[in-house]
Amino acid sequence: MNALLTSAVAGLTAGGTYALLGVCAVFTYRLVAVVNFTGAAIGTAGTFVLIALYEAGYPIWPSVAAGIAAGTLVGVAIGYIMTRWFGEASASTKAAVTVALLVGIIAIGLRLTGGQHPHNMPELFPGSAFRMAGVEVTIASVLTIGLAALFTVLADLFLNRTKVGLNLRALADRPMAAELLGIRVQLLSLLVWGMTGAFTTFALMIIAPQRSPNFMTLSLLVVPALAAALVGLFRSFWRTLAGGIVLGLVEGMASSIDSVSQYRSAIPFLVVLAVLLWSQREARWDEAR
């Protein structure tokens, strides 16, 4: 039992990251109507700028700032492509484009970072924050969950209390009607891509030391993140936050059970399947009647 709890708590860091990446995915979907498969890859690009600078001997915090700036820029670049050329495309076309971009970013990233070549990833927040049920909870865990909760609160406040947020909600509902009213649609869309790029990068910088700092591994964190977003049905920030954390906890617990440990990477897939079946139950019921 204690081993299970230890593993669950160890899964908190991953859960916080899934939650933050998931909340960013919901933010992007609600505001620019894109199911974004490049979310984690954008953050990975920024994280590897930090790694490159750190390995070259630059001080850590300026390197972190440079990495976040790079992640923001990559996010804006992807956003520019999506807004400029696919602004009026269907949701499925946009999602397919981001999958293609993900493949491209991973290919470029692996080429530039040397694939499986081990990297020296600095631990930004080493050490333990507190003990819970006899288990050490790391500062990284607390920070990722805190950052995810902060992003959720800020996103809610930003969208509901500011004029820019109001314009973004209008833009998400009817982009052309918003543009006809003089709203700077392209600028606002790029703002969304830039903001999510910055947050994603910082989250991945925190979690990277606990994961294999490999460009592909970090980029594919988008899978559990989208599973978390699906728990919130791509609408609710708070349900996405909870979904991401629970997903991390379940993954952590699964790692301590020998018989299921090797299948734990399939957990996000099972969550996606379960949520889709659950969300379709009313349609099935109506059909059956």
């Binding site: 109001l166 909600r169 209008a170 509902d173 009817r174 918003a178 009213l181």
Partner: peptide, 20 residues
């Protein structure tokens, strides 16, 4: 003013007006 009454559906009347 486009055909089809293009209100921002998720916003209130007042919010629709504030947007513009």
């Amino acid at each position: 003013v486009e055909q089809g009454r293009t209100v921002f559906r998720q916003l209130t009347t007042e919010e629709n007006l504030r947007v513009s």
